[in-house]
Amino acid sequence: MEDWMLAALIGIGVYILFSLIIYYFQDFFLFRPEKLPADFVFNYKDLDFEEYNLKTAEGAMINGLRFRVENPKGIVFYLKGNSKSIKGWGKYARDFVALGYEVLMVDYRGFGKSTGRRTQKTILQDLDVIYQQMQKHVNQKHIILYGRSLGSGFAAQLASKFKPKMLILEAPYYSMRSTARQFVPLLPVTLLIKFPIPTYQWLKEVECPIHIIHGTNDQLIPFSTSLQLAKVNAKRTTLHTILGGGHKNLNTFAAYHHILNLILTESFTIPVQSSEDSSKESPSAGKESSVL
């Protein structure tokens, strides 16, 4: 066999092998769950909360926490990222509780105490049922959807289907397929990715105000992603830039808490960029605020 033919066959074999690895093991790459025993007891000494369990039609169990306040202004449905469980994510409820909002957090299937087979379809179905249950007790005009990283796509889908008060996305991705292309640019990700999560498509259908919060030093999901997303539904979208912010540390910036306070107290006014560079942005790019 000619050397070039052998090299070509080896190259094709390696390409197919990597494609199969991405297809069959992508759940491992995408999700980093922390599993908790069924009898695990949550403990937040400074927060008032109660635990919920929702049994799905096919028998899965979705576990969640509701952080309570007296005379709440509304409720934030917080959709977390791809790692750990609500055991660790619960600390982020403090930001919203301090501003008078209750918070609902749930673990996706296979995270924490939640059970069941995890697919994009089942996750979206679970979140849909939870939102509908929430509607029975809270008017939609008092529901805020908050999606962080992985949860941003799920939050966008819910906002496209229902009519919450507002949608807040922290470090969102354009789609999971586009994010995958950054890491495996030569593979056919359109065919391989089981969780395409097209955030940009769902944002087109959102009718409530959209706030995007993103750090300029995000090494996992580039800030440029939010610049793209801000153009999808520009009239309803405001992009909040945190200079120097990374992917996992926005809550350590005073600017993040300042922005969140302005958004949730509805005292946010749309600032107009004054620098020459920002004035050259397309008018369809959405409104933007920049905070040091």
Rank of each mutant, 00 (worst) to 15 (best):
D107R: 06
I75K: 11
E102M: 08
V103C: 08
L104N: 06
S83A: 15
L104M: 13
G81R: 04
T115F: 01
T119A: 06
R118A: 12
L104E: 07
I75L: 15
D95P: 00
G110N: 11
L124P: 02
V97P: 01
L99Y: 04
G112E: 00
V103Y: 07
I86H: 09
L124H: 13
R109M: 02
L79K: 03
K113R: 07
G112H: 00
F111G: 07
T119L: 08
N82D: 05
L124V: 10
R109W: 04
R117W: 10
K87V: 11
Y101V: 00
I86G: 11
K113D: 00
L79V: 10
V103R: 05
D126W: 08
R117H: 13
T122W: 02
Q120A: 13
S83K: 13
R109A: 08
T122Y: 06
K80L: 14
Y108M: 05
L99I: 02
M105K: 05
S83W: 11
K121Q: 14
M105C: 06
T115D: 01
G90T: 04
L124T: 12
N82A: 12
D126E: 08
Y101S: 02
A93Q: 07
S114V: 08
K80E: 12
Y78A: 06
S114L: 09
Q125V: 09
K87L: 14
V103F: 05
W89Y: 14
N82I: 01
A93H: 09
